[in-house]
Computed example of a mutant assay.
Amino acid sequence: MPLVLFDLDGTLVDRQSALDDAVSTLCRAHAFPPDVEQRLVLELAERANPGDFSRLGAAFDLKAPATQLWQEYVDLMSATVACRPKSSKAWPVCARLFGPSVSSPTGPATSSAPNWPGPVWPD
């Protein structure tokens, strides 16, 4: 049975590091200038949706379609998100409920990723 875990306060999943890595990779792949990368990180810090990429694409005259950028972002977030270290106070709860290989998409940006392999537990 599939399970979805919502980490609304960032206790279990390190979304900020994943966001920084995903946006950096996306911007390098499309040769976006630093101001676009900075704006994306700012705009997507709390949550992300396809409309953000439409709006930012128009603001910066980006050539790539917003739907393509959104899908790339979702894929990158899915690939880079990681659970908090095992020393976190939340880890025992997460491990007890779901086991050490828990899969927990973080927020709307990754909830549509169909083949998300799950987070990596740092050592």
Rank of each mutant, 00 (worst) to 15 (best):
P34C: 07
A79K: 02
S88F: 01
L19H: 00
N115P: 06
A66M: 01
T67D: 07
P100H: 13
H30A: 09
A59E: 15
V93D: 03
S87P: 02
L56D: 09
P2F: 15
S103Q: 08
S87E: 08
L42D: 09
A58Q: 15
G107N: 03
P122T: 09
S104M: 14
A64G: 04
L12K: 15
S101H: 10
D7Q: 03
F32T: 05
N115I: 05
G99D: 02
D75V: 05
S88R: 02
C27F: 05
Q16A: 04
P100W: 10
P108S: 11
L5D: 07
D14E: 12
P50S: 14
R84A: 13
D21S: 14
S17N: 15
T106R: 04
A113V: 02
L8A: 11
A29R: 00
R15P: 02
D14T: 02
D9A: 13
P117T: 05
G107Q: 08
S112F: 02
V13K: 06
D75L: 11
F53H: 07
A95Y: 00
A31S: 14
P119Q: 14
N115S: 11
A113Y: 15
Q68M: 15
L26Q: 08
W121N: 02
Q71K: 13
T110P: 04
A18C: 03
E37P: 00
W91P: 08
P33W: 04
F53T: 00
V74K: 01
Q71T: 15
V36S: 04
A113K: 04
L44G: 07
D7M: 05
G51L: 14
P122N: 04
G107T: 06
V36L: 06
F98T: 07
D75Y: 06
L3T: 15
C94H: 13
V4C: 06
G118C: 09
S17Q: 15
C94S: 09
G10K: 14
T106Q: 04
A31G: 07
F32G: 00
